[in-house]
């Protein structure tokens, strides 16, 4: 049914740390690897070795340059996948009921057997989280690795989404965001986790942790604890340079 549940018992989702993400794209690769051979239709590629390769991905990493008013520019790597919104516009637009949000854990999924491939849900998503597979002609999206997280055939350590399991810099965290005591909820509270495009009213479950304040190399005196002990005894040059300085002053 494409009406949204009024509430979900749990809100499984991701917390993505923009401070520690190094932009290695390992999550992209592991996501594609797991999801092309498990839940639903494979994630196809078109012209993969040709001049214009293109393919279906459930997770992509953007990179942004942020230029503060004062100081040097920062580079922020920005992984983006489905945010499993509480108020998911992609679900309600679906004409067939293929798109749905689960009441038990809040995961947004597509039933690929009833998807007619109209593409309306991808239009409704502001985040670009849904991609129509060009080979299977059905809508693909992040399943939060629903076939891993409850899979008792896997060792417990692997029962998290593939992207979280593979992240080498611990920038991705998985958990229940409805539980205020969960690790992810505490992380969000401690680091000021934020919603993307809050004005769109989608109420995303996934949160992003903003980059921490950077050191300012042009203001090292403010943070240099040794500076008082290393105060220069003179700021006048000595020897030949001292003579040159005085000579040039007199000209």
């Amino acid at each position: 049914m494409t009406t949204l549940p009024s509430s979900t018992r749990r809100k499984l989702g991701l917390v993505i740390d923009l401070d520690t993400c190094v932009g290695c794209h390992a999550c992209v690769v592991s996501c594609k690897g797991w999801n092309t051979e498990n839940y639903g239709a494979p994630l196809s590629d078109q012209d993969p070795y040709g001049a214009e390769p293109s393919g279906t991905f459930l997770n992509r990493v953007h990179s942004y340059e942020v230029q503060p008013d004062d100081g040097t520019a920062q580079l922020v790597h920005f992984p983006k996948s489905c945010l499993h919104c509480d108020n998911a516009p992609c679900v309600t637009v679906c004409p067939t009921g293929a798109s749905y949000k689960r009441q038990e854990d809040g995961i947004v999924l597509v039933n690929e057997d009833t998807c007619i491939g109209c593409g309306l849900c991808a239009w409704a998503c502001p985040y670009g989280a849904r991609e129509m597979d060009a080979a299977a002609k059905v809508m693909k999206k992040c399943t939060l690795c629903v076939d891993r997280i409850y899979n008792e055939n896997l060792p417990e350590v692997d029962r998290v989404p593939a992207c979280v399991r593979t992240c080498p810099s611990n920038a991705r965290h998985f958990g229940d965001l409805a539980d205020p005591d969960s690790d992810v909820s505490q992380l969000v509270a401690a680091r000021g986790g934020m919603d993307l495009m809050p004005e769109q009213g989608t109420a995303p479950v996934n949160k992003y942790l903003p980059p921490r304040l950077k050191d300012r190399l042009d203001r090292t005196e403010e943070i240099d604890v040794l500076a008082p002990f290393l105060a220069p005894v003179t700021d006048q040059p000595k020897g030949f340079l001292g003579w040159l300085d005085k000579a040039l002053d007199k000209i």
Binding site: P53, V66, L196
Partner: peptide
């Protein structure tokens, strides 16, 4: 608002996630 990075400064797309086109770019 899309990146949530506006409080730091001016946001500019530095590098896209892929070198080729994709469904999103073709459709939207």
């Amino acid at each position: 608002t899309a990146t949530g990075l506006g409080h730091i400064g001016t946001v500019r797309a530095f590098e896209p996630p892929h070198t080729g086109p994709n469904y999103l770019l073709r459709e939207m």
